[in-house]
Amino acid sequence: RERTTFTRAQLDVLEALFAKTRYPDIFMREEVALKINLPESRVQVWFKNRRAKCRQ
């Protein structure tokens, strides 16, 4: 699998959701994945990595 490159628009949507909740449930992830045209698994990993970035 190639490394996913997120567009600015995708990142804006993800960051906005992250500001609301750091742990979105499966339904929220599915919804945002459809909206920004990414698989739900990529959204899940993005959140995992974003939380890790926050902890540093």
Rank of each mutant, 00 (worst) to 15 (best):
R1T: 11
R1N: 06
R1M: 13
R1H: 15
E2H: 05
E2N: 08
E2F: 05
E2M: 04
E2G: 08
E2L: 06
E2Y: 05
E2Q: 13
R3G: 14
R3T: 15
R3K: 11
R3A: 12
R3N: 15
R3S: 15
T4F: 15
T4C: 08
T4K: 10
T4I: 15
T4N: 15
T4M: 13
T4P: 07
T4G: 11
T5N: 14
T5E: 14
T5H: 11
T5P: 10
T5D: 11
F6M: 13
F6D: 03
F6V: 11
F6G: 03
F6I: 11
F6W: 10
T7I: 03
T7D: 10
R8Q: 15
R8A: 15
R8L: 07
A9H: 10
A9W: 09
A9V: 12
Q10H: 04
Q10P: 01
Q10I: 05
Q10K: 03
Q10L: 02
Q10R: 01
Q10V: 00
L11R: 10
L11A: 12
L11Y: 05
L11G: 07
L11T: 09
D12M: 04
D12G: 07
D12L: 06
D12S: 07
D12H: 07
V13N: 05
V13D: 06
V13S: 06
V13M: 11
V13T: 13
V13H: 05
L14H: 06
L14G: 03
L14R: 02
E15L: 00
E15R: 02
E15D: 01
E15F: 02
A16N: 08
A16C: 12
A16M: 08
A16I: 04
A16K: 04
L17C: 12
L17F: 06
L17N: 04
L17Q: 11
L17V: 11
L17S: 07
F18G: 01
F18T: 00
F18Y: 09
F18S: 02
A19M: 10
A19D: 11
A19T: 09
K20T: 12
K20I: 05
K20H: 06
K20Y: 01
T21C: 09
T21Q: 08
T21F: 03
T21S: 07
R22T: 06
R22G: 05
R22N: 11
R22Y: 04
R22E: 15
Y23W: 11
Y23V: 05
Y23T: 10
Y23R: 08
Y23N: 10
Y23Q: 08
Y23D: 11
Y23H: 15
P24N: 03
P24F: 01
P24C: 00
D25H: 04
D25Y: 01
D25G: 04
D25I: 00
D25Q: 06
D25C: 05
D25F: 01
I26P: 06
I26C: 09
I26D: 09
I26G: 09
F27H: 11
F27D: 11
F27M: 15
F27T: 15
F27N: 11
M28D: 07
M28H: 07
M28E: 07
M28F: 03
M28N: 04
M28I: 04
M28V: 07
R29F: 05
R29D: 01
R29C: 12
R29Y: 07
R29H: 02
R29G: 00
E30R: 13
E30M: 12
E30Y: 06
E30I: 04
E31Q: 10
E31N: 09
E31L: 06
E31D: 07
E31C: 05
E31G: 06
E31S: 10
E31P: 00
V32P: 02
V32K: 04
A33M: 03
A33S: 09
A33P: 00
L34E: 14
L34A: 14
L34V: 12
L34K: 15
L34M: 12
L34S: 12
K35V: 05
K35C: 03
K35Y: 01
K35H: 07
I36T: 14
I36D: 01
I36W: 04
I36R: 01
N37T: 05
N37M: 07
N37H: 10
N37Y: 00
N37S: 08
N37I: 00
N37V: 03
N37E: 11
N37A: 11
L38W: 11
L38A: 15
P39H: 08
P39W: 02
P39G: 02
E40Y: 09
E40M: 10
E40C: 06
E40T: 06
S41F: 09
S41C: 06
S41W: 08
S41D: 13
V43T: 01
V43P: 02
V43F: 03
V43N: 03
V43I: 13
Q44N: 14
Q44S: 12
Q44E: 08
Q44K: 09
Q44D: 09
V45W: 14
W46S: 01
W46C: 00
W46R: 02
W46N: 01
W46H: 00
W46Q: 03
F47Y: 02
F47H: 01
F47M: 07
F47L: 07
K48C: 06
K48Y: 06
K48L: 06
K48W: 05
K48F: 05
N49T: 11
N49Y: 04
N49M: 11
N49E: 15
R50N: 13
R50G: 00
R51K: 00
R51A: 07
R51V: 06
R51P: 01
R51C: 03
R51S: 03
R51Q: 03
R51M: 03
A52T: 08
A52F: 05
A52R: 10
A52G: 11
A52N: 10
A52M: 11
A52E: 12
K53Y: 05
K53M: 10
C54S: 13
C54A: 14
C54N: 09
R55L: 14
R55T: 09
R55W: 10
R55H: 12
R55F: 11
Q56L: 05
Q56M: 15
Q56K: 06
Q56I: 11
